[in-house]
Amino acid sequence: MSDLDVHLSAIAAGDADAFGRWLAAAEPQVRASLFRFAAVVDTEAVLQESLLTAWQVAPRIAPDGRPNGLLRFCLRAARNRAISEVRKQGRQEPTAEVDAPVEANAPDPLLRRAIAFCIERLRGKPAQVLRARLDDPGAEADGSLALRLGMTRNTFAQNLARARRQLTGCLSRQGVRLEPNP
């Protein structure tokens, strides 16, 4: 990975678009770092809070001569937040495990084309629920999206599972794998 601190001065100045460019590369790394906590804490909530903290703290990140200072800060913030959640639950901190990075076995333009190809082939309710999710970046729970589509929560979830399975199968036939290694 290149040095994401190329965006740091703009982020520190309050440029949310620059933070978006940083996020595009940083988010998968921070999510992957939370792998060992996945059975104990809700890593999505921890991740979003840690990314927000990175935005808030960016103006105070001083260069230390090493690359990716903001990312390193965010990784520490995510780990500390996860450990804090583990302790609140009175559970033991999970031991370090070998991480399982998400690997997309195709260059990005090819990956994008393959996913678009496979999504176009989705039909009916699986296509509807996936579109609803993609169009709603975390603003509403699935229950609300289901209501809008005239579905029950269970039907929404079942159609989402169908969409994911069909997509995974289609992508696999295109030579693309998005599942993390076990």
């Binding site: 949310a16 933070f19 978006g20 460019r21 996020l23 595009a24 590369a25 988010e27 998968p28 999510r31 992957a32 939370l34 792998f35 996945a38 890593t43 999505e44 991740l47 979003q48 990314l51 927000l52 935005w55 998400v102 997309a104 990005d108 990956l111 994008r112 996913i115 678009a116 999504i119 999710r133 993609l134 709603d136 970046p137 975390g138 603003a139 994911r164 997509l167 995974t168 998005l178 599942e179 993390p180």
Partner: peptide, 28 residues
């Protein structure tokens, strides 16, 4: 967690700015 990672990779690949729904939620 595993399904979320796959979904986010797919979302980011589809997004013109390479952002997943997680990234969009944070930016919002």
């Amino acid at each position: 967690y595993a399904r979320t990672r796959s979904l986010r990779a797919m979302e980011a690949a589809l997004d013109p700015d390479g952002l997943s729904t997680t990234a969009h939620a944070v930016l919002d």
